[in-house]
Amino acid sequence: MSDSEGQIRNFLVVVDDTPECRLAMRWAARRAMRLDGGGGVVLLRVTEPPDFQHWMGVGELMREEAREEAEQLLTNLAKELLEGTTLTPQFVIREGDLAEQVQSVIDDDKSIRILVLGASAESGGPGPLVKRFAGERSGTLRIPVTVVPGTLSRDDVDMLS
Rank of each mutant, 00 (worst) to 15 (best):
D107Q: 15
L73S: 02
T88K: 15
R67W: 03
E5H: 13
G127M: 05
E95F: 06
Q90D: 11
V102W: 02
G125C: 08
E48P: 03
V102Y: 02
A70I: 10
L61E: 13
D109W: 05
V92F: 02
G96V: 13
F91V: 04
V13A: 01
L23V: 07
Q7P: 00
P89S: 09
P149G: 09
L23H: 08
P49I: 07
T47I: 15
W27S: 11
V92D: 08
R22C: 05
L115K: 01
D107R: 14
V157H: 03
K79P: 00
F52K: 05
L152M: 15
E122F: 03
F133I: 10
V46T: 00
K131C: 07
E136V: 15
L35F: 13
A70G: 10
Q72S: 12
E68K: 09
I114S: 01
R94N: 11
D158F: 08
P50F: 08
M56G: 10
E95N: 07
T18N: 12
V145P: 00
G118K: 04
A99M: 09
E71V: 13
N10Y: 04
E122V: 05
R142D: 14
V102A: 07
G84F: 15
E71W: 04
S111N: 15
L115S: 02
G59E: 13
E122T: 13
